[in-house]
Amino acid sequence: MKKKCPRCSKTFNCRSDNLFECGCMHVILSADDYRYISKHFDDCLCPVCLTQIKTERQCSPKLPAAPPLK
Rank of each mutant, 00 (worst) to 15 (best):
K2G: 01
L19G: 04
L63C: 06
T55Y: 14
A66N: 08
N18P: 01
A66W: 09
N18W: 05
C24H: 09
E21N: 15
R57S: 00
K70V: 04
C22T: 06
L63I: 10
K2N: 06
R35T: 05
C24N: 04
K54V: 09
L50V: 02
P6E: 06
P68W: 01
K2L: 11
R7N: 04
N18Q: 13
C14A: 14
C46H: 05
C14F: 13
R15Q: 11
K10C: 14
E56K: 15
E21K: 15
Q52H: 07
M1W: 02
T51A: 13
F41S: 04
P67D: 03
V27S: 04
D17K: 14
F41T: 04
F12M: 05
F12I: 14
L29I: 00
T11S: 11
K70S: 00
G23Q: 02
C8Y: 07
P47E: 05
C14P: 10
C44D: 01
K4M: 03
K70E: 01
L63V: 03
H40Q: 13
Q58T: 15
K2Y: 11
R7W: 00
T55M: 10
T51P: 01
K4A: 03
K70C: 02
K70H: 10
Q58K: 13
C46D: 06
V48G: 01
S30C: 10
S60K: 12
L29G: 01
H26T: 13
C49K: 00
C46A: 11
T51R: 06
R57H: 00
V27C: 07
K39M: 03
K54W: 11
P47W: 15
R7E: 05
A31V: 08
Q52F: 00
